[in-house]
Design a protein around this nucleic acid. Structure first.
Length: 165
DNA sequence: GCCAACGTTGGC
DNA sequence: GCCAACGTTGGC
């Protein structure tokens, strides 16, 4: 059951484009957001993020770091099986099958921004001062975004592209 | 439970 | 590649 449009929440997911980029998601259409191994982010994936929620796809460790596009959550939190797979990159030796520690969601590609919204732009734009991603030393890879912040950033992404509303 | 050492993240 | 900030680990 999907969340009604006016109840949708907004998030920002970080990914290193060398590992998995918005272009990979565009090609794949959907993906499992695997490999999150931080408890605060895990709690969001497990408890808060719902089908229909919207996600900014942020390229970290990139040149330049930027919000590169957007996606929609198409499956809410479920156990991240890669934690139990010894061959997997994100294998967690402390994990016990049947008692999941780590969770993931699935996301579906919505849009690759023709003009990525760089971290520099985010830092310069009034109204985004409280965003975690603009603050130094914030490493959380899954972050909440307010509806107001979402709107401002979408505006930035579409500057110079009035045909896209 | 403290906290130093260590590994990771991520901008620059 | 550097390094500051952060989260986790593990000795005590």
């Amino acid at each position: 059951m999907s969340t009604p449009a006016d109840k949708r929440r907004h998030w920002l997911f970080k990914s290193e484009p060398d590992v998995y980029s918005i272009h990979d998601l565009e090609r794949d259409k959907t993906t499992c957001w695997e490999g999150v191994r931080n408890y605060q982010a895990r709690n969001l994936l497990r408890d808060e993020i719902q089908t229909g929620d919207l996600v900014f796809f942020y390229h970290s460790n990139a040149n330049p770091p930027a919000i590169a596009g957007m996606a929609e959550v198409c499956r809410s939190g479920y156990p991240d099986h890669t934690a139990w797979d010894q061959q997997a990159k994100y294998y967690d030796p402390k994990g016990r099958p049947g008692q999941p520690t780590w969770f993931m969601v699935d996301i579906r590609h919505l849009e690759t921004f023709a003009q990525p919204v760089t971290l520099t732009m985010l830092k310069q734009t009034p109204g985004l001062e409280e965003m975690m991603v603009t603050k130094r030393g914030t490493r959380l890879s899954v972050q909440p975004v307010t509806a107001q912040e979402w709107k401002i950033i979408l505006g930035l992404a579409r500057q110079g592209m009035p045909s896209l509303r």
